[in-house]
């Protein structure tokens, strides 16, 4: 089987052929044939074409361009990291200025700092992926509301409501802080989720790296590391005690990032409550004996009716939809 690298190398051949000049009719046919012969070829070809066209911008470097100025000293791949990390690691501002001068005078004008507050939210049952300026990605769960406020000295997120998973790109010079009420969660490069629901303790779960949670500015921060979770009690004066979580359970708890809910021996009552966050359609269970039955599985988060039917089938119950709710009975 061809690897992505092999495909790339053929795609690069085609990009170079086109770079030479217009394709002859038979070449064009051969290209189309190659593209259509494997579902991966189109993407690889378009990507290589993009690289070929992108590199045309090198003309802006001007005839004075001297490649040897770039190869001296320590090497930091220019494409490996972004922004200030790269500028910092790439030793010497002189090189930067050399390119700048060679390119054009306009680039010497100071670039404005990225600043300002931006607001993101999701409706009930909606999910959203947002990529931020530094490469950090936020995944918003149902009914969530956040404010993003980046400056050149810190990255600050205000979690107003709901649950958000953060895949944070490390930046030593700019701490990453999630504020929720008076509490805060601080990280640099890590993956963690913060959940803030009405009348519930703030919940933090860490998949990778570590964070420090702080109930309020008066209390000492508590460290929460990978595969741990912590709840921040609503009333202060209670200590935060992080607990270990099995990696499998972390994945289950974060299944919502792919629009799913995962249960491991969860009671139907607990499952009904979990689904309540995602949909207007309530799962109603009047019989305590039914409410205590347990279910295991992976479900589409915003489809309580399918869940109720699957649960009914598995447990030998009845699921009935009436008056905007789904009822589970014996």
């Amino acid at each position: 089987m061809m690897t992505a690298m092999d495909i790339d190398s053929i795609a690069a051949d085609w990009a170079a052929r086109i770079d030479r000049g217009t394709l002859a009719a038979d070449e064009d046919r051969a290209l189309m044939q190659w593209i259509e012969s494997d579902s991966r070829h189109r993407g690889a070809f378009m990507r290589m074409r993009a690289i070929a066209l992108h590199s045309e911008r090198a003309r802006a470097l001007g005839p004075a361009f001297d490649p040897d100025r770039f190869t001296a000293g320590e090497y930091q791949s220019p494409l490996r990291s972004r922004g200030r990390r790269w500028r910092g690691a790439w030793n010497g501002r002189a090189k930067v200025l050399a390119v700048a001068a060679a390119a054009c005078a306009a680039v010497l004008v100071a670039l404005p700092l990225i600043d300002g507050t931006r607001h993101y939210d999701t409706r009930q049952g909606e999910f959203k992926v947002v990529s931020l300026a530094d490469g950090t990605v936020m995944t918003l769960n149902t009914a969530s509301n956040v404010e993003v406020d980046y400056t050149d000295t810190r990255r600050r997120i205000r979690l107003l409501e709901g649950e958000v998973l953060f895949d944070v790109v490390k930046d030593r010079t700019r701490p990453f802080i999630v504020a929720a009420g008076g509490a805060s969660v601080r990280a640099i490069g890590t993956t963690f989720a913060v959940r803030r629901l009405k009348d519930k303790p703030l919940h933090v779960i860490v998949r990778e790296g570590a964070v420090e949670v702080q109930q309020n500015s008066l209390l000492a921060p508590v460290r929460v590391t990978a595969n741990m979770q912590a709840e921040l009690p609503i009333q202060s004066g209670v200590d935060v005690e992080p607990q270990a979580v099995e990696p499998d359970e972390v994945n289950r708890k974060l299944a919502w990032q792919d629009g799913r809910i995962a249960f491991e021996a969860e009671t139907l009552a607990g499952a009904a409550e979990a689904f309540g966050r995602y949909s207007q359609t309530a799962i109603v269970i009047d019989d305590p004996a039914v409410a205590g039955r347990q279910i295991t599985g992976l479900f589409s988060a915003n489809d309580p009716i399918s869940f109720a039917r699957a649960a009914a089938k598995t447990l030998g119950l009845n699921a009935e939809v009436r008056a905007g709710a789904v009822h589970l009975t014996q």
Binding site: H54, S55, R57, A58, A60, L61, F65, P67, D68, R69, F70, T71, Y75, S77, P78, L79, G83, W86, W90, V96, V99, A100, A103, V107, L111
Partner: peptide, 16 residues
């Protein structure tokens, strides 16, 4: 995308 930064990266990529 910061044009200046893009050009720097391209210049170094070519140099390598």
């Amino acid at each position: 995308v910061d044009d200046h930064q893009e050009l720097e990266r391209l210049a170094e990529a070519i140099s390598r």
